[in-house]
Design a protein around this nucleic acid. Structure first.
Lengths: 337, 337
DNA sequence: CTGTTAGCGCTTTCAT
DNA sequence: ATGAAAGCGCTAACAG
């Protein structure tokens, strides 16, 4: 590779001005058919590719979107990423993927790095940032959509977009299912305390229990890491300390699978001794033994809708859609028939 | 947001020249402590962020790496992505993630888009491109590392980097384990015929069987889709047609899980009637019943090593490491104790 | 130690 | 329909 072919190289070779090449590249219509043909041929022949970065410097558009997730390898977020990428690609945008590794400091850092990269907008998933920091970070970006996190402040640009799951309803459906099967002592593995999804699902659990005339003891509720290991540890403590529990509602399927393992460790049969309900319906959910009863959420759609919303806002959509709430669906399998 | 704060704004506010600000931003050491302090304060106060894109135009470095995968939501690749992102972040690079959706046209397209984005290099996973197209695409990038795909051509820049799994050794270890347990009639569910990994694992199987003085009948070997369903169907046919088989070596864990199911269908006990060995050690492998004996492959490490190799090459590492082969490790569980 | 002068590769604006 | 000039925000190469 000697040096990158520039527009000027194409212009010289084709014997036209730089501007003519620029017009052809950008599909402007004030170029004669012959000239256009000539330039296109030359471009192909030289293998010229316009530099988005030089272009970005003048247009103030980079065609890049920042996508921030806590953990790409979490099947939940990898689906969100896939959906978001799909829409971005279709609209000729690129995705700068940032993994915060569930770390608030890193989240702040990548948000800043995304600023320096001059992205046209960001999709921020399950932010764990404090309201202030989040507001600050967002206001520094030209456009932003939050996934699974709401924000109260109204900024002068018409607010950020928001795409969420109806976690409260999901928590209600799951809890109600267990109540319907006769369970009364239902434990909750609530996920990370800072998780808004966790808070919503917990709220749904509380409402439904209360509506059924049950006041869950606080010792029935345990926070845990959103992982198999977190679920295993959490369930072990929860079941160990509360023998009266006959069912567990879990923050997500990974936690539920951990709970499955904990029951194995403790010699509890599922669903006869303990019934378990998860959340998300990740592919794994149907494959473990026993197969998980769970609330299905369309993570892919979370990603597509978020990216669509963001691109609309970047495009300057006037009727500013602010919020999209996706519903969940209970999938009944063997862990809580 | 009125307009982005520029370096000139900081310079004016601090009463210094643009260059001084530039020096502070880039941590050059020829700035007096006082001036540096002043500039840093002003930067903070104004909330200035340098534009990587303006910087990139002059330095010819964008600090972005293209990462191309067939499917982000495949747990295999999402681990690779996580590893690659981790290393990139640590070295202050950003990752432009491109999902080809297992589509060759798209793979070509994203590779081109990455050129226009002027990335400093690319990590290309499991490329399905024809050798010619691949060579062409790669030679147009300043640096490239291939994951799970080898390339024969040597280009003038010292060749592309390559990171692969030692599939042959993996196949040998797995097969040898079964031989050691006394199995002689060992069947192979070989995965898709076009899979490079599958070919390597098959090769390992053959070598080990032959070394043990066994010539496996071709009817013991069956290709199959790399999925649970593919494994179930394949195993049913293999075991149905060859009652002498006492063990199955499977292309990957999903196939192995399918084989588990097939044994259930056929009333064969595992591991007593049929022993089963998988490949990859996906999280599920430890969770199914019986738990899978499998060859563990570190997908995360595939990602970290690939990114490390790429960054070394971008950094102009002279002793051009060309190829990294990651080994696998047999994890013995209940399906083949 | 600090500032000045040139661009980087492109698009915008204004001529022709 | 085409071209010339100016400048996007920054850094490299010199000056002082």
């Amino acid at each position: 590779m000697t040096h990158r072919i520039r527009m000027a190289d194409v212009a010289r070779q084709a014997g036209v001005s730089l501007m003519t090449v620029s017009r052809v590249v950008n599909n402007k219509d004030d170029v004669s058919a012959d000239t256009r043909q000539l330039v296109q041929t030359t471009i192909k022949q030289l293998g010229y590719r316009p530099s988005d970065i030089a272009r970005g410097l003048v247009t103030k558009r980079t065609g890049a979107i920042g996508l921030v997730v806590p953990d790409v390898s979490n099947p939940y977020f990898s689906e969100v990423v896939r959906g978001a990428e799909h829409v971005a690609y279709a609209e000729n945008y690129s995705v700068l993927l940032c993994n915060t590794e569930e770390n608030t400091q890193r989240e702040l850092a990548v948000l800043q790095s995304l600023e320096e990269k001059c992205v046209d907008g960001i999709v921020l998933c399950s932010s764990r940032l404090a309201e202030d920091d989040l507001e600050e970070a967002i206001s520094r970006h030209p456009a932003a959509v939050l996934v699974n996190r709401r924000l109260e402040f109204a900024d002068e640009r018409g607010g950020v977009g928001v795409v969420t799951l109806d976690d409260i309803a999901g928590g209600q459906i799951a809890t109600q299912h267990l109540l319907n099967r006769g369970h009364r002592a239902i434990g909750l593995l609530a996920g990370p305390p800072a998780s808004h999804s966790g808070q919503g699902r917990t709220e749904g659990y509380h409402r439904t229990m209360t509506a059924a005339g049950i006041s869950p003891f606080s010792r029935w509720i345990k926070h845990c890491a959103p992982t198999v290991e977190g679920g295993r540890t959490g369930a072990r403590e929860l079941l160990g300390g509360n023998p009266e529990l006959t069912a567990l509602f879990c923050f997500n399927d990974l936690v539920a699978i951990g709970a499955l393992q904990a029951c194995g460790d403790l010699g509890q049969a599922i669903p006869d001794d303990v019934a378990i309900v998860g959340f998300d319906d990740i592919p794994l959910a149907a494959l473990v033994t026993p197969a998980l009863t769970t609330c299905r959420t369309s993570r892919y759609e979370l990603g597509t809708r978020a990216m669509e919303l963001l691109l609309e806002r970047i495009g300057g959509c006037t009727e500013m859609c602010k919020e999209i709430v996706l519903s969940t669906e209970l999938i009944v399998r063997d862990s809580a028939p």
